[in-house]
């Protein structure tokens, strides 16, 4: 009886370690997913700004030339 108790404890500890390990990979997966999505959205935002600037610049230039 006394002998099995530490073994049992060890079992619990190793289970704990294993599960934490698995949480690690789950978190990697989710982080990767959201990071990729965020990068794509940021790329899109930067392109949006570039396009807006370009349109503004061209409009101003056309106004200038019409005068």
């Amino acid at each position: 009886m006394d002998l099995t108790a530490p073994l049992f404890l060890a079992q619990i500890v190793s289970d704990e370690v294993r599960l934490q390990h698995e949480y690690e990979y789950l978190s990697y997966g989710l982080t990767a997913a959201w990071v990729i999505l965020a990068v794509y959205v940021l790329l899109m935002v930067s392109r949006e700004r570039k396009l807006k600037n370009e349109i503004g610049r061209l409009r101003a230039m056309l106004e200038d030339r019409r005068k």
Binding site: V41, M44, E48, L51, I55, L58, R59, M61
Partner: peptide, 26 residues
Amino acid sequence: VMTAVRLRQEEAQREIDSLRRMAHAL
């Protein structure tokens, strides 16, 4: 949502192209 935003960017790109053509014509 992302596709719609990207779609609008493509439209903006076409507007830029037509503005450029106008600028060249002037």
